[in-house]
Nucleic acid binder design. Structure first.
Length: 171
DNA sequence: TCTCCGATTCACT
DNA sequence: GTGAATCGGAGAA
């Protein structure tokens, strides 16, 4: 079952855990197709969340997070890695879910390398896309939470939010 | 323009 | 455990 825009039209704290266990289907430019199960996500929630890029307000970069739910937000970090995110909640509310890991690969940098994610995906829709789709195969994950990674700069209050979601039954 | 630094990873010590 | 690689966004000037 293909995830629709309604799935993403909810608070990021609901969407992020719901994305655990879902299937990413990637059709590469050469026509080959691969499937990956999502095993780890993180929630970035609005302008008040200091760890969220949108905490700096609306800028050309964060503009994407204000777009409609189901929009893909891709950005470059440390000059070499693309991060894959999905925008959630209604337009004008800047929230996004970072896909931190897929089955068999730990780390968002490796993930986007495997999936060949780059800036051409930025601002595209995930629910109506030729190259990348999200499916629910009714898999029921065992979800645990933990602190988000690499957000110490956001200060104690925001760095300590347990907004990382992990499938406990996969390793 | 110029400077600072990050939602990371990997090679070394 | 430490540090380099590497570049575009954001803010200061």
């Amino acid at each position: 079952m293909l995830l629709d825009q309604k799935f993403f039209d909810r608070d990021v704290l609901k969407v992020a855990p719901d994305l655990i266990g879902k299937i990413i289907v990637r059709e590469f430019d050469d026509g080959s197709i691969k499937r990956f199960r999502i095993t780890q996500t993180e929630a970035y929630r609005g302008e008040k969340d200091k760890a969220c890029h949108a905490s700096k307000g609306r800028t050309p970069r964060t503009e994407i997070m204000y777009h409609k739910p189901g929009t893909i937000y891709v950005y470059l970090i440390y000059g070499m890695y693309w991060m894959l995110n999905f925008v959630t909640a209604k337009s004008e509310i800047p929230q996004a879910v970072l896909i931190r890991a897929i089955e068999g690969y730990n780390g968002p940098g490796k993930l986007s390398k495997i999936l060949k994610i780059d800036k051409t995906f930025n601002d595209q829709s995930i629910v109506d896309n030729q190259r990348i789709k999200l499916f629910d195969d009714l898999y029921k994950p065992q979800i645990t939470t933990d602190l988000r990674i690499g957000v110490d700069y956001a200060g104690e209050i925001w760095a300590q939010k347990p907004w990382r979601f992990i499938d406990n039954s996969l390793t």
